[in-house]
């Protein structure tokens, strides 16, 4: 049976989204979907041919400094991970692909 938990509550503007607890955090596509959903809801990113998984979300005008802080807060809460200061000031969280990859490396390490 799938367990549903409030620990999986999203901080997105869409309100509270419940996710199944079991075996989800290491599922690549589900992780990317959650990040995509956050970016679509909070940063109005519409991924298509113009904005791809490799698009720099800062340069494209989707995320600014405070948006980045909120994104990091979401990722740390959603996936129960912590980024180091070095990781945050690197350019590793600038595209959907990089964000997903970074989250996965954290989950794998944890």
């Amino acid at each position: 049976m799938t367990a549903w938990s409030k620990m999986r509550v999203s901080s997105s503007d869409e309100g509270f989204v419940y996710y199944p607890m079991s075996n989800t955090t290491k599922d690549t596509s589900l992780t990317q979907d959650k990040i995509k959903q956050y970016l679509a809801t909070n940063s109005l990113v519409e991924f298509d041919s113009a904005v791809t998984d490799d698009s720099d979300l800062f340069k494209e005008g989707f995320i600014d400094s405070f948006g980045y802080i909120e994104l990091v807060k979401f990722l740390e809460k959603e996936f129960q991970i912590r980024f180091t200061d070095e990781e945050l000031v690197s350019n590793q969280l600038n595209t959907l692909k990089n964000i997903t990859s970074m989250v996965h490396s954290k989950l794998d390490a944890g």
């Binding site: 503007d13 340069k59 600014d64 802080i69 807060k73 200061d85 000031v89």
Partner: peptide, 20 residues
């Protein structure tokens, strides 16, 4: 956004992400 009653602003990070 919700859950931003307290935000920790890492100043190095802030400076770096300001440029665009």
């Amino acid at each position: 956004p919700k859950d931003t009653a307290i935000l920790e602003l890492n100043l190095d990070l802030y400076m770096k992400t300001r440029e665009a």
